[in-house]
Design a protein around this nucleic acid. Structure first.
Lengths: 149, 149
DNA sequence: CCAATCCCTAGCTTTTTCGTAGGAATTATA
DNA sequence: TATAATTCCTACGAAAAAGCTAGGGATTGG
């Protein structure tokens, strides 16, 4: 039941974007440097985020990425699902229910998986990227405050 | 963010035990047959459940497994954690926090992982094995009812 | 034109999952 | 006591998934 690096790195990158690309776009290279990630790998994560219309990009020299929407209108749930796929704990409870279980309605454990899925979604859909962005800025403000005393 | 077969098979086996070993012990072979699982693999799962004091066993011929406690006193959370380890979505938020993050207190995503972890635990710790056992019995009762009409 | 950047995808390495295999220890029963 | 049924234990192996690396193509500002 662990998130992969996709979800973890990708969410970090989204916070970084929210903080550093307020009204401009920034190069993937600079994000990768700040977060100590492989550029090539992060590129693949950005592709997922772009496909899900959470980020947009400008190609060519001086190009870069920026958020496709206001951070207040992006939930952590959208981000994580874009990167990880459904957050349901089993294939049989994924929102896009393509998987078909042979037990069908006679499975007593299914209810458990549905409750887990719903509670995870409830949590992540109740947190906006804006909140994390503000957390980040607050932490950094405090840190620099301490520094100057 | 998927459960492994350990968690899924193991929980099924626990429900099976709750239903079929009310006041006796039953052989692993019969559980494996009912659930269409590999005996050898299920054996490894039972070892995890036993280590966590959720099942007990009788060795030798006519031996078998039985629940170590009343099903009402066993939560799905105990079962899943015995099989899967911590249900936290990241290593840095596992209950036995041996893992140490370099960011320490300056990580804005950590709060998200903690909330996910807590909501999962809340759900699974609020469901008892007894409930699933009763669900199972109810479904089977209804099924046989339909059959005889 | 060219250097910087995003875009695309094939492939590689490591880790994890999901078992299989088989022998040792234990015990009811004939 | 011998035997068969069972739990216990551990090593190994195949397959899948994760976590990248690599490199070439497309686009565009300077």
């Amino acid at each position: 039941m662990k998130l992969s690096t996709k979800g973890r790195y990708g969410l970090q990158a989204m916070v970084d974007l929210a903080v550093y690309s307020k009204d401009r776009h920034i190069a993937l290279k600079s994000i990768a440097e700040r977060l100590c990630m492989s550029e090539n790998y992060l590129e693949q994560l950005m592709a997922l985020l772009k496909k899900n219309e959470l980020v947009s990009s400008v190609r060519g020299a001086q190009g870069g990425y920026f958020l496709a929407k206001d951070p207040a209108d992006i939930t952590i749930g959208e981000i994580l699902r874009a990167l990880e796929g459904s957050l349901a704990p089993t294939d049989c409870t994924c929102e896009d229910n393509t998987y078909h279980c042979t037990l069908d309605g006679k499975c007593v454990t299914r209810g458990v998986w549905e409750k887990i899925r719903d509670s995870i979604n409830k949590v992540v859909d109740s947190i906006s990227l804006k909140q994390l962005m503000e957390d980040y800025e607050k932490i950094n403000e405090e840190a620099s405050h301490i520094y100057y005393i």
